[in-house]
Structure formats: C-alpha cells, structure tokens
C-alpha cells in the first residue's frame, strides 16, 4: 500500500477517531516506513499545538445585543401576526358584503341589455321615427292645405293672396286644392288675387285638369290684365287647345284693343 493511502488514517490517528483495527493497520505501516512515522509524529505535535491556541471569549456585549435583537424580532413577529389578523378580519367582512354582489350583477346585466337592445332594435326604432316624422310632416302639409283653403274664403284680398301663395309650398296639390284655385281664378272679385292665382296655377301646369281649367277660364276673364296674363301663360305652356278659346274671346265686341292684338299674336304664335 502506498503511503498516500494512509492519509485518511493519519487524520483518524491524530484526532483519535480510529477503530482498533484501523489503528493496527497504521501501526503496522509506520513500523516499516520511517517517512510516515516522522510525518505522523510531526503532525501529532502540530495538532497538539493548535489545540493550545486560545479561543477568546465573546464579550458580554454580544449577549446583550442578542437579547435586544431577539426582543425586537419578537415584536416584529407580533406586528406581523396582528397584520395577518387584520387581513383575516377584512376578509370575513368581505363575506358580509356578498349580498351586494347580486346587485352589482343586476346593474351590469341592465347595462348589457340596454346596449344590446339598442344595437339589435336601434335600426327599427329609427325606422319608426322616420315613419312618425313622415306622418307628422304630412299632417303639417294637410294643415297648410286646410289653412290655404280657409284663407281663400277670407274677405280680405291680401289674405286670399297669402292663401294662394301657400300653394307654392304644397308639393303635391290634390284635386281639392286645384279646384279651389280654379274657382278663385274665375270668381274672385279682386284682379290681383286672380293674377296671383294664375301664377300659382302656372306652377301646377303639370296636372292636366289645371290646363283644362286654364283653357276654360280664358272666356271667363273680363279683365284685360287677366286676359293678357293668361295669353302669356298659354304661350308659355304652348297650349294649342287654347286657340279656340281665344277665338271665342276675340268674338267679344268690347274687348280691349291691346288685348285683341295680343291675343291675335298669341294665336298666330301657337299655331
């Protein structure tokens, strides 16, 4: 066995941890190996010397410091515990809050339903609104029409003119309005009212009954102003059916000269 292999036993020898058997093995080796024997002796001596090195005592200060530290630590642990107890208490309180959660849940559900409902039915709603708006505007329209008709019956000429002017605001003049206007055109005592009525009717010339009414009205007019104006309108509308009516008018002996010339001119232009 090589000397290095006894190293473990050396340590055991000097700190007296060897078993009797191990001791025997080592003793046998050193009896034959001078090198190891001197080495072991030297180490044994050194080991002894080391043991004589004094270890100083700690000062009393150390123990004072220790107990101070222990006390502070105990305090801090207590604090931590009370903190934990606080948290526990808060948690238990939290459980009592529980009934409020369904309420919060309800609120959330309401919000969701409102938003969802708006998203789902919002379109229909706006359609509804459109319909309502249309109904409303048609009602206003009707109201205007009624007002116009009422104004045409008004004794004041200016009010009647105002009534006639309303027709420009009526988009879809129905038969009732046209009849009322034609009646005004033929029968109104005031020439200004009749002139404005003629103007209003010209705008409604798209309706065939308006045209017919105007043609029929030619012979009904006795005012030169009206005759001239109606001749202009016929010319503008290029209404050839009015020629006969104008020829009838020319037969009237008391017809104004100016009007007569104008009508003749109109007839030639229309034909």
């Amino acid at each position: 066995m090589k000397c290095e292999l006894y190293e473990e036993l050396f340590t055991g020898w000097i700190n007296k941890e060897l078993s009797a058997e191990e001791k025997g093995v080592l003793e046998q080796h050193i009896s034959g190996c001078d090198h190891c024997r001197t080495e072991l002796e030297a180490l044994q001596q050194l080991w002894g010397h080391i043991g004589q090195i004094e270890t100083p005592e700690p000062s009393a200060n150390m123990s004072v410091k220790f107990y101070a530290m222990l006390d502070t630590y105990k305090e801090s642990v207590k604090e931590q515990r009370s903190l934990w107890a606080d948290i526990k208490y808060q948690l238990s309180n939290f459980w009592q809050w529980q009934p409020r959660w369904p309420m919060a849940y309800n609120l959330v559900m309401i919000v969701i339903l409102v938003v969802g409902g708006y998203l789902l039915f919002g379109k229909n709603k706006s359609d509804d609104q459109d319909r309502q708006l249309q109904a409303l505007s048609s009602q206003v329209h009707e109201l205007k029409q009624t007002m116009m008709l009422a104004l045409l019956e008004n004794p004041s000429a200016s009010e009647r003119i105002r009534g006639v002017s309303y027709t420009s605001e009526i988009k879809h003049a129905d038969k009732q309005v046209i009849d009322a206007l034609l009646a005004t055109l033929n029968n109104d005592p005031n020439v200004n009212v009749r002139l404005s009525t003629l103007d209003a009717l010209t705008h409604l010339a798209g309706h065939p009954e308006v045209r017919e009414g105007l043609i029929k009205s030619i012979v009904e007019q006795d005012s030169p102003l009206m005759q001239l104006a109606i001749a202009d309108v016929m010319l503008k509308l290029q209404e050839k059916r009015s020629v006969n009516s104008f020829k009838e008018l020319l037969k009237q002996k008391d017809l104004d000269h100016g009007v007569r010339d104008k009508i003749k001119q109109t007839i030639t232009q229309l034909i």
Binding site: E7, F10, T11, G12, N15, L43, G51, I53
Partner: peptide, 30 residues
C-alpha cells in the same frame, strides 16, 4: 475539527462531502 472538536462524520455533513474526503482534506491542511 480541532477547535470545534467535531467528528469527521459531522464535518462531512456540514460541508456536504464524504467522511473520507474530510479526513484527506484535514490531512492535507495539516
């Protein structure tokens, strides 16, 4: 091992090595 007078087996536990290693190391240190 010397001042604390711990057994090699105990030192081995503290240092996390085998008892044999501890013994060899003590020897080398010596």
């Amino acid at each position: 091992s010397r001042f604390q007078e711990l057994k090699c087996q105990e030192i081995a536990q503290i240092l996390g090595m085998t008892e044999g290693t501890v013994k060899v190391r003590i020897h080398r240190a010596m």
